[in-house]
Amino acid sequence: MLGTIIKDFKNIFGQFIYYFVLMVVFMAVSVITKNIYYYMGAIVFFCVAVPLSALAYDEKDNWDKFALASGVTRNQLAVSRYLLGLIVFLPMWAVSFILVAAGGMWNIENLSVLLSYGGIALLTIDAILPVVLKIGVEKGRLVYILTILIVIALGGVLAFLVEAIGGDSVLYSSVAVLALGIAGFFLSIKIACNIYRKKDF
């Protein structure tokens, strides 16, 4: 599985500068406007965009055939897609906490936003990856775009709730969203493994 992830990083290495510049821009906008939503939205976008890019390369190269013929198991192949998503998500999410603390934005409302978006990012991975593994990257892109639109709408609703309700109840809701994202992550991996188990390559 390590070989598959190393291959993914080598494959998408050329795109890292592009991703990095975009991330810095979103970070700067968040700090300048004192609005963490910009950066959090970018996290959701990137934690799915990177595995999708890697999957697109794999589809073009028929990598799955080679990997399976070489001793990588179907489960390992499925799980490696999620690991790549986590490898992108976790550091970016950790940076968001630093950004909020260092930017003087630390309050219960922003903490709720960080936790909620952590959950939303995971839920986005949970929803998109099994679909893409089932129907392929090209057709899956439509699902990806739709999901991102839903996430943007959810962001709006979240911002309204944080403003309107505020306090501990929003924080509890955020923890629930995060817990849902984590639980969904394991469920989604199970679904993806089932898809791979039945698939002919």
Binding site: K7, K10, D61, F66
Partner: peptide, 15 residues
Amino acid sequence: RIGAVLGETCLPENL
């Protein structure tokens, strides 16, 4: 212990 060459190249072409 099985070496495979499939019809297509099946290797990462970007590498």
